[in-house]
Design a binder for these strands. Structure first.
Lengths: 307, 307
DNA sequence: AGATTGTGATAAGCTCAACTTATGATTGGA
DNA sequence: TCCAATCATAAGTTGAGCTTATCACAATCT
C-alpha cells in the first residue's frame, strides 16, 4: 500500500464517523472536494469502492469497514507518539484525559484533583464521567488516556492498577436504625433501590443480594446515588451505597447507615490505561500517589495487594 | 503529532535498520539529503533529537527508540492493508511469504507446494528457512506472513493452527537393529548426536532423554538431520529424527530405525500467523487443506484435535 | 603535516500532489 | 416543476518534498 498517507486515513475515518462528505470535510478543516478526492484516491489504490454513495446516506463497503478498523488502529498509534514526547520530558505534563464512573466521581474527584495538581503542576486535567462500558471504549479508541473504574475489567489490551477496596453499606430509614442488619437474602424481600442499567455498581449490588436475574418489579431505579438516598429518606425502600459516598450523601437526608457483617459486599476501585500508552510509567506513578493519598485520607478503605 | 507522514516513518525505520543515512536513502530510493531533511523534520516535530550522529556510527536516542517501536507498529498495520484487499478478492492470491523450520522444510515442502499450487494457482510462494526463534521475529515484524513450526509457540499476538503430530524415531547403526530399544534414560549413556543450538528439535530430543541441562561433552552436534544420520552410519553415535524424515534420510545411509514404546516422543507441527493478519480466514483454509493432504499422504502422522 | 575518504548537513531550484473555488449532475421532496 | 441537498468534476494555485551540487568535518593514510 505504497502512496498511502496518514491524511487519507484521517479523512476516511472522519467520513466513516460523520457519514457525510461535507461534515467530514468540515471536521478536517478542508473543503468537501478535497476530501472527495482523497477518498477517491484511496479507492483507486484499493482497486475497489470503499463507500457506497446513497442519495441520502452513505455506507461503508465490507472492505471499507476493514480499512476503517486498520485506520483507527494506525491513527491511535500515531496519537501515542504525542505521549511519547510527554513521557520523555518531565514527570507528567500536558493534557491528561481522565474518565471516572459516576459512582466514584463525586466523592473521589476532589482527592484526585488535589493530588494531581499538587504533584504535577504541568498537567491539564480533562474530565469525563460515564459508565464503565463507555469508558473502556473511550480508552481503547484513544478518546481518553486513563479511567477510574471498578476492577476487574479483564481486557487484554488494558493495564489495571488497583487503588483500594471499599465496602458497601446499607441505607435505610432512620427509624429502622436499631433493627438488625438484614442478610443478603432478606434484602430480596425489601424494596431495593438501584441505579439504572449500565452502572457497574448496580450489578455489584444485585450480585451481593444474589438476585439471579434482574426482577424489575421489585426494584426501583435512580440515576445517581444522591437520588437513591433521597428516595430512601422518603420511605420508598432501602439501598446500598459505597462507603466513600456515606459522608456526602447522608448529610442532607434523614437516613440510617448499617454495615454488613462478613462476608461484606465490596468493590475494588482502580485505574486502567492502554498497555501501549507510552505514559504507562507516569500513570503508574500517578496511581501510586493516589493510592497513598487515598489511604491516609479515608480510614474505611482497604489496601490492596494486587497490581 | 499533526503533520507526521508515513514517508517519514518509513525513512526513519530504514535509517534505524541501516544505521547509515546514505544506505537508508538508497533503500528508500531517494537521495541522501531528502532523507536527512525528513529526519530533521521529525526531530523538529518531536522537539528533541532522535538520532545521535557519531562520526563513524549513528545511534538512536531513547526517544528515537520509542519512535522506532511505534513506527514499526504503524508500518506493520499499513502492510496489512495490502492483505485486506487480497483477502477480499478471490480465495488467496499474490505473494505469500512462508517460513519453515529446517527440520520440517526438506520433507514437508513438496507436499505444501503441491497443495498450494494446486488449490491456489494465483499464489506466489516466497520461502524462508530458519529456526523457530527467527521465524517468530519475522512474523511479528511482518517480514513473513506464515510460518510452519513445532507448537506450541504461546505468543499472544499469534494464532496457532495444529497440522499433525508425529513421532520421533531412533536412528542407530544397522548392526544394532536387533538390540532392544533403549529407554530414554539409557539414551543418556549413549553418544547422542543432536542439532546445534537454536533448533527446537534439539530441545525436544533433549527433553525426551530427560537431560536436565545440556552436557556438551556427551553430545555431538550436526547442522542438519542428513548430517546426523550420516554420522550415525559412520558409527559416531545414535540420534533421533522425526518420522517424516525417515524415508529420505535413511535412503543413502546404512542405519537401522527403531520406534519407541509409549510414551513415544513426538512433536506437533502447525502453522502460525499474526492474529491481526486480514488473511487469517484464508490462512485457516490453507491450513485445513494442508492438514487434510498430509493426513492422506503419510500414515505415521497423528491427527490433532486442538486448534 | 597534508591529502584523501567517508559522512551527513546545507543550498537552490524544480515538480507535482493536494488544496482552493466554481460549477455540474443527480435525486428526493415541496 | 422547481428547489435543496449532496457528491463529483474542472481549473487554477501553492508548497512540501524531491533532485543535484556543494560544504563542513573528522578519521585515516602517505
Amino acid at each position: 500500500m505504497i502512496g498511502l498517507t496518514l491524511k487519507q486515513l484521517r479523512y476516511f475515518e472522519a467520513l466513516a464517523r460523520h457519514q457525510h462528505f461535507g461534515r467530514a470535510a468540515d471536521a478536517c478543516s478542508i473543503s468537501q472536494p478535497a476530501l472527495s478526492q482523497q477518498i477517491k484516491e484511496l479507492e483507486a489504490m484499493f482497486g475497489t469502492p470503499l463507500v457506497e454513495r446513497g442519495r441520502r446516506e452513505i455506507r461503508l463497503t465490507p472492505i471499507g469497514l476493514g480499512l476503517l478498523e486498520k485506520a483507527r488502529q494506525i491513527l491511535l498509534t500515531v496519537e501515542e507518539l504525542d505521549d511519547l514526547v510527554r513521557a520523555a520530558q518531565g514527570p507528567l505534563s500536558g493534557r491528561l484525559r481522565l474518565g471516572i464512573i459516576p459512582t466514584v466521581a463525586p466523592y473521589f474527584l476532589p482527592t484526585i484533583i488535589a493530588d494531581l495538581a499538587g504533584r504535577f503542576p504541568g498537567v491539564d486535567l480533562n474530565l469525563r464521567e460515564a459508565v464503565t462500558h463507555s469508558l473502556i471504549g473511550d480508552l481503547q479508541d484513544g478518546r481518553i488516556d486513563l479511567a477510574v473504574v471498578a476492577l476487574p475489567i479483564s481486557e487484554p489490551a488494558l493495564t489495571e492498577f488497583a487503588l483500594f477496596e471499599e465496602d458497601f453499606v446499607l441505607v435505610r430509614m432512620s427509624q429502622d436504625a436499631d433493627k438488625p442488619v438484614p442478610s443478603p437474602i432478606a434484602l430480596q424481600a425489601m424494596r431495593l433501590l438501584l441505579l439504572e442499567e449500565g452502572h457497574c455498581f448496580r450489578d455489584q449490588a444485585l450480585s451481593f443480594c444474589e438476585f439471579g436475574e434482574t426482577r424489575p418489579g421489585a426494584l426501583m431505579e435512580g440515576s445517581s446515588l444522591s437520588t437513591l438516598v433521597q428516595m430512601v429518606g422518603a420511605g420508598m425502600g432501602v439501598t446500598l451505597i459505597p462507603e466513600m459516598a456515606v459522608d456526602l450523601e447522608t448529610r442532607s437526608a434523614d437516613v440510617a447507615i448499617a454495615r454488613f457483617p462478613h462476608p461484606r459486599p465490596s468493590r475494588t476501585i482502580g485505574m486502567v490505561w492502554r498497555k501501549t500508552n507510552p505514559l504507562a510509567d507516569q500513570l503508574m506513578q500517578v496511581g501510586a500517589i493516589i493510592r497513598a493519598a487515598g489511604m491516609g485520607a479515608r480510614g474505611s478503605k482497604q489496601p490492596v495487594s494486587q497490581e
